[in-house]
C-alpha cells in the first residue's frame, strides 16, 4: 500500500506546478488549466488524508470541489471566449484594463 506521505508529496508537487503555471503562463487557458491542477492537487491531498484517517468527509469534500470546479471552468471558459472575441487574444498581460 502506497504510503500517505507519497500522496501528500505528489499533491504538493502538483500544487507547486499549478502555482508556477498560474504565475508564469501568459495564456489564459493555460492559467486555467494550472488552477485546475491546483484544485486537483488539493483533491488528492483530501482523499489521501481521508484514507489515512479513515474518514469519509475528505472524499465527500472532493466531490464538492470537483462540482464547483466544473462550474467554474464553464464560466471561466465562457469568459475567455468572450474576451477572445473582443480582444483577439488570450494573453493575460494584455488584459490590464482594470488597473487603478
Amino acid at each position: 500500500m502506497v504510503q500517505t506521505e507519497a500522496y501528500v508529496i505528489l499533491s504538493a508537487v502538483l500544487f507547486v506546478l499549478g502555482v508556477m503555471g498560474v504565475l508564469l503562463k501568459r495564456n489564459a487557458i493555460l492559467v486555467y488549466m494550472s488552477v485546475e491542477l491546483m484544485l486537483n492537487a488539493a483533491n488528492l491531498a483530501l482523499v489521501a488524508f481521508a484514507r489515512q484517517w479513515n474518514q469519509m468527509d475528505g472524499q465527500m469534500f472532493v466531490f464538492f470541489v470537483m462540482t464547483v470546479a466544473a462550474a467554474e471552468v464553464a464560466i471561466g471558459l465562457a469568459l475567455i471566449v468572450a474576451i477572445f472575441r473582443t480582444k483577439r487574444s488570450t494573453n493575460i498581460d494584455q488584459l490590464h484594463q482594470m488597473e487603478g
Binding site: 502555482v19 498560474v22 493575460i92 488597473e99 487603478g100
Partner: peptide, 17 residues
C-alpha cells in the same frame, strides 16, 4: 492605493500566494 491595482492577473495571483 490605486496603483496597487495593476490589472495584471499575475500580480493578484502573487499577492494571493
Amino acid at each position: 492605493l490605486r496603483t496597487v491595482q495593476t490589472g495584471y492577473v499575475r500580480t493578484y495571483a502573487v499577492t494571493v500566494l
